[in-house]
């Protein structure tokens, strides 16, 4: 009985750790958006201020998917 519970606990922690890998994808996505925004802004600085809102919206959408994996990690750790 005790062993099974321990195994379940181990699985939970391993799963939570694996779930955090998804955050790396969010990091890549957000970095990609920021890099491309910066490149575009340096090429045409006068058009950049009008696009900052779109930039933040894009970052938010990219981040949302990373947040989901963070949520999965938290659910595994604390709720499952």
């Amino acid at each position: 009985m005790e062993d099974v519970a321990q195994f379940a606990l181990m699985g939970k922690y391993i799963g939570a750790g694996l779930a955090t890998i998804g955050l790396g994808g969010a990091g890549i996505g957000v970095g990609n958006i920021a890099a491309n925004f910066l490149a575009g802004a340096l090429r045409n600085p006068s058009a950049a201020p009008a696009q900052t809102a779109n930039f933040f919206v894009g970052v938010a959408f990219a981040e949302a998917l990373g947040i989901f994996s963070f949520l999965i990690a938290l659910l595994l750790l604390f709720a499952a």
Binding site: I67, F68, F70
Partner: peptide
């Protein structure tokens, strides 16, 4: 869901 978890999670 994403709207709320983004803020709360951060």
């Amino acid at each position: 869901l994403s709207h709320s978890i983004r803020l709360g999670g951060n």
